[in-house]
């Protein structure tokens, strides 16, 4: 492995949702295409659904940046939990007006406002982390989508309990559901290699072999967030050795020892 900047390498795997960090993967590309084409269907809501760390925010972010030039689209990357602020933001997004601090947006008024725009405009709102919204607020979101003037694309974490709740919603509403899953070994390999190569570490990418990917996959299950954490830890240990005991690392082989050490540090292996 290249004995260069491990500090830079580990920072490649800091968890960020940013369009510049996006890499094309078979599954991600497929899901993205489904997502984008679903916006042209007569749907009220589109749901991105999956376990934490499967790339929901990443897709939503990409969607926003791809469409912002030619569609009316607004992106709430962090949930707006207070109803007052939420309704205000929706109205401000639609109208382009700023509501004074002391004013509130009345929900019925907002609904009427939407109804009057029917067949004139279609505005898309991207809401990330929807599991944080309260049930009453979700109900308002649904009512707004019923006007067919605003369309929501929302992301929701999948947990055992929410699965049931979510399914209840789907029965009564017109939804598109796109479920994201953990990466398989192939996609995980592409993910790691593309990320590393993107920053110019071609040798590092070459030193990571199939068996290493297998090893990583068994511990992270192909979850992107978990994989980020794992690779960050691996390069963090490399970083230490490079600075303190450079003799202990070789330049052309991805060290199984460090892989295992990182796994121990993260509790994947009990030692």
């Amino acid at each position: 492995m290249m004995s260069s900047n491990y500090d830079e390498l580990k920072n490649i795997f800091v968890d960020v949702v940013d369009k510049s960090a996006y890499v094309e993967l078979e599954s991600a590309t497929y899901n993205y295409d489904v997502l984008e084409s679903s916006l042209d269907k007569p749907l009220k809501m589109v749901l991105l659904y999956g376990k934490p760390g499967t790339g929901k925010s990443m897709l939503l972010n990409k969607l926003y940046h791809n469409l912002k030039e030619n569609r009316e689209i607004h992106y709430f990357e962090a949930p707006i939990l207070s109803e007052k602020e939420f309704l205000k933001s929706i109205y401000e997004g639609m109208s382009g007006q700023v509501i004074p601090e002391r004013m509130r947006v009345n929900f019925d008024g907002l609904l009427k406002y939407c109804q009057k725009l029917k067949n004139q405009r279609e505005i898309i709102f991207l809401l990330d982390e929807c599991q944080l919204y309260s049930e009453p607020l979700m109900e308002k979101i649904r009512l707004l989508s019923d006007t067919r003037v605003v369309k929501f694309v929302i992301t929701l974490h999948k947990t055992e309990n929410e699965e049931v709740i979510a399914k209840e919603h789907f029965k009564t509403r017109i939804w598109e559901v796109i479920e994201l899953c953990n990466a398989n070994e192939y996609d995980l390999e592409v993910y790691i290699q593309k990320k590393v190569i993107k920053k110019g570490f071609v040798d590092v990418s070459n030193s990571i072999k199939k068996r290493d990917i297998k090893f990583i996959h068994t511990h992270t299950n192909g979850n992107f967030r978990e994989t980020n954490k794992y690779l960050y830890t691996i390069f963090d240990i490399y970083d230490y050795y490079e600075k303190n005991e450079p003799k202990k690392i070789s330049s052309n082989k991805f060290s199984r020892k460090i892989l295992e050490m990182a796994a121990i540090r993260l509790g994947y292996i009990n030692a």
């Binding site: 109205y91 002391r102 004013m103 509130r104 009345n106 019925d108 008024g109 009427k112 406002y113």
Partner: peptide
């Protein structure tokens, strides 16, 4: 301090 439908 709600915006009424009228105001909207």
């Amino acid at each position: 301090d709600y915006l009424t439908a009228k105001e909207l």
